[in-house]
Structure formats: C-alpha cells, structure tokens
Amino acid sequence: MTTMFSGASNLAEGVDRAFIFIFSVAFIFIIAIVALIFYILIHFSRKKNKNPQQFSGNTTLEIIWTVIPVIIVLIMFYFGWAGFAPMRKVPADAMPIKVIGRMWVWSFDYGNGKISKDLVVPLNKDIKLNLYSEDVNHGFFVPAFRVKEDVIPGYNNYMWFRAISKGTYDIFCTEYCGLAHSGMTGKVIVLDNADFDKWFADLKVSDNTVHPGLAIIKQNACLTCHSLDGTKIIGPSFKGIWGSKRIVVTAQGEKEMEGNDEYIRRSILDPNADVVKGFNKGLMQSYKEVLKAEDIDKIVDYFKTAGGQK
C-alpha cells in the first residue's frame, strides 16, 4: 500500500506531465481572475467610483484573448496527446495476460489454466493486458500506473504497462456494473524477477473447465439477481436450491415445493406463476424466448451436480 501520487509505471510520467501543465495554467488563471475581481470590487465600488466609464468593447483585446487561449489549449492538447500515445503502442514482446471481469470479481489468466485472483507481474517487464468481460461493462483501473480501459463484452480492448517499482497497488472497477460495483477491487503485486518466477511456478493449474450450465447462467446475466454464495440480491441465491424445500406464493396462497428438475424449469420459463416467498413478482422475466431447451437442461444439470448444492 504505497504511493498515492507517485507513478509506478513507465506511462505515469507522461500523464503526470500533462497534469502538471494543465493545473499550473489553471492555477495562474484562477488566481489572476480572482485578483482582478477583488481589484474591481474594491477599486470600482459604487462608493468609490461615481463615474462609470461607458466603453463597450475593444477589438484588439478580443483578438488577444482569443488567440492566447487557443495557443495555450493547443499546448495542453499536445501534452495530453504525448502522454497518451505510448499507451497504444504495445511492445511486440510484451507478456500477455488475460484479464477477466465478471460481476464483481477480477481474475487473471496467465494461459495454460493458470489463473490468479491477484495480478502479479515482474518488475520492469512489459505487460499486455487483454481485457475480457463475461457479462456487462467493467472498467479496469490501476491508479498508480495511470492506466484505465473499459472491459466491454464482445470487444477486444487492451492496455499495456511496465511496472517500475515494487509494491502492491489497487485495482478498481470504474464502469458501473451493479450491486457490488464498489466491491470489484483487486491488487497488482509487482515482484522482482526471481520472486515472480517462484510465484508463477507455485501457481496451481486451476480446473478451468466451467460447467456448461454455469456458462449459460453467466452469459445470460442471471447473476445480476442471483448469487452463487448464499447472498440474497434481487432474487434468491442458487446455493442450496437443489433438493431443498421452497416456499412459494401462488394465486391460491402459500405452498411448499421441492427444488427439483420440474421446479427449476418452471421457475425459468414461467417465473411469475409461483413466486418464492420474500421476493417480488414481475422482476424475473420468462426465458422462454431466450434459452433453448438444451440450455435449460444444462442449467438444471449444473444445479444438480454443482452450484445448487449446500
């Protein structure tokens, strides 16, 4: 947890230079304007000045205060551009890492099934991040590195950087993505080469094969409303749904049902027929038009064999 202002990547210097230039100009102008206002209020106050002058324009002045700001903003534009241009020029030999954004966690895929929840990178090595979203828009932001790019489904957005100082840095999600948007944070850990190699060798190959049912659940953003870990969001959590007693409210009143094949199908195809007690009707729309029969089979199988267990 170091550094709030000092940049920790090769790109920070260009960004900070643009900041400093713009803020210096702003500071000078604002001080000058405030000073002029006070001067006017004191020197030309109604008490002091009984003879307001009646001039109403001056072409030379208009030209001056058009041309000078144009020059200044063009310089600002230049600094902004100079700081940004290198961000798009990824060195050919940069080490690629796939960043996966899903509601509300980041994970980092180093290839060959090696997936980490922290972004661990070696010091002074060019890193290219390929940004991939499994559901909605996210934003990948590392303030200390001065880099940010949106993570958009269907887009191959990317960024790159070279970490120039060891430490641990914050990752924030900067594109609003629902309930736990502010919890979608993570860490970048910069290690020197030897430590990185050791860490990488120890990184277990995780079982990357996602259950096809879960994949469908994710693609259809069911997780906006349903959690996998027991948290109640807009709808009930999927945890423990399989084989358990479900209390539902029907037109005839409350009744008890079992979380089985038929129940889950009905919940997906006709969600508002029986509404789970404690939740509102009309929130979940029917997926009749959206999901194919075999998709639903896969979802049911997922609940049965994995996600629906206690």
Partner: peptide, 18 residues
Amino acid sequence: FTGLTLGSVATDIQVHNT
C-alpha cells in the same frame, strides 16, 4: 479548467469515471 483536464486524453485516462 477541470474540463480541460478531462479533454486531454492522458489525464482523462486517469480521472475518467472517478
């Protein structure tokens, strides 16, 4: 002036959506 900070691409990258 802070709008200019957002118009300049390099600085916008840092402060966008903050």
